[in-house]
Amino acid sequence: MKRLAVFLSIIICLILSVGCTGANSPSSLTLVCPDGAPAISAYALKDTKVNVTVYPSASATASIQKDIRNKSADVAILPVNLASKLCASGADYKMIGVLTHGNLYGVGKNVLDENGLKGKTVGVIQLNAVPGYTVKLMLEKMGLQYVENKEEKNADNVYLYQIPADATAVKTALDTSKADVCIVAQPMCDRLISAFSLIKSIDVQSLYGYFPQAVAVVKTSVLENRKSEVNEMIASLSGCDYTALNATELVNWINLHVADGEVSSLAPQALTVSALEGSNIRFSPAQNEKSAVLNYLTQLKRFDTELGTVAIAVGDTFFWSGV
């Protein structure tokens, strides 16, 4: 009995000590974001007290979703459609602003203007996710029909197929003429251009328009009770010139903040000025982006199926008015 009591006491002490110990002091805001452009945007907070956690791309959606649902994250940077779904399903967070405004570009071996897409084969990363949906919206806006079935390809439409987000895969597809152009995200676009002497054929943002790709959401209680910290965070995000960052310092900082000791997919040599410019990272307050967000979510909802929804139409309460 005595031994059992001692054993239980040790266990309880361990649990309490784990509960009490934390890398973060109670006053620090916690921010979570996926690797890539959102992680670059979070670099603006490097001199603030905000504790940033970067999730590797493969697990980012699940991890951020978990952090929002159990409210362990005060701030999250995530794709706008996911933000709409989480907030609509009861997560008490509000959008404070848009951080990335589209970074999709087409690379190929030949110059290919928007008129030259007809009859072409286009490889797209994440065809069944937001990048793919955005490309489809772009083609519709250009009045072009697209198909995803090779048998339906003809001289008048555009054949879309999924390509892995892998530089070798893109190069192979272009070399073997499997694709005429491949749509990828920055900074991969510039890396492909410099490494394999390719050409930036398509600017999705120019053809479709800038779109609110990644947004920042903050817990409502934090917005209400820690407004000054939120404002400080917004000031840092707004004040950062993302095109003038030191690539090595940037990647080193991100690597220090990647969860579970993982390493970022970003490499310093890929983060050229041009790549950073093309990533379209800039903080734009929620009230300024309201119509753009609502419009984009409405467009994305067209890709809803009977199996699930891509986005949820949000109301005014989704947007924070405090800025």
Partner: peptide, 21 residues
Amino acid sequence: VTGALKSMGGLINTAQNVYLS
């Protein structure tokens, strides 16, 4: 992993990462 279209695996991927279901 490959993201094959019209596939159960692709559907699992979409359900997990897009539909959040």
